[in-house]
Design a binder for these strands. Sequence first.
DNA 1: CGACGTCACCGTAGTTGTGA
DNA 2: TCACAACTACGGTGACGTCG
Length: 280
Amino acid sequence: MKKATPILILLNNFCVSQVSEEYQNGVWHCIFAFHSNHMPQFSNIPPLLLVTRNPKLQTIPNLHNDLHMIYNLGWKAKEKDIPQGSSRDESEGNSNDLQPSQSVLPVLYQDLNCLPYEEDVSDSEFQDNEMNDESLPGFTEKKKRTPSDHIAKIALSDLIKYFDMPIVEASRHLNVGLTVLKRKCREFGIHRWPHRKIKSLDNLIHDLQEEAKQQESKDKAAAMAVTERKRMLESEKENIEKKPFMDIQTETKRFRQDVFKRRHRARASEKRSSTPAAAT
DNA sequence: CGACGTCACCGTAGTTGTGA
DNA sequence: TCACAACTACGGTGACGTCG
């Protein structure tokens, strides 16, 4: 029985002033720390951080670019230091002079989609990571249980793609059951599927688009105001897509209520004007 | 035996209608 | 015109059967 190694690294010897740069990418925080006086020597990108080795990493935006950035940072620093005659091609996977030296950093073998201390991932897992036939579109037989590795692969970025549809439809597209999708939502801090919020904002944006078109020829200033409001709603929608737990702003709710009222008035007056004609 | 899928029921957000 | 009631669609939850 294998036991995974802990991924926690003590940073006792670091002080905050030595942290020179930080880079944040979406919901993921990648913290890469090393002592400024003791630059690590990178032989290559750790295999587990390569998409070819670990397909789950495809869900992390820009991971590949970021790793290369970090890798180059290390090399630049190293070039300034004591030049050692290795080639840079290793970043592309050609690690022909990869030799275990005492200064090469230990590589993490923790699967980033699992909790630490879980059983180590065996190599065979990577081999049967491919989509099975049941998950392909067009497969109509009774729904089989979703494999746990497929569930583990689902990232927040996958969910975001389906926020504009009902949760049931989203679960179908993601090829998991409702139970699993809802559990994933809680994991990511989403307590309510934001479809209705987004649909409601979409309707308002659509209405404003129509209104802006109509105002364009009549009143330029009014058209500008409508376009500005539309832009605000679009940014609010984007915010909700990024932070699905966010509520619709009070101001927007008020505006929405106004739109409903106007719509209702228009319908009522339309009904009034059409009723006598219908009666005759 | 634990995790998943499905279903029924309930609650509520969003929308529409109505009476003062 | 506005506040509030009513309606509707959809999400949450729990129970239960099934599967790996």
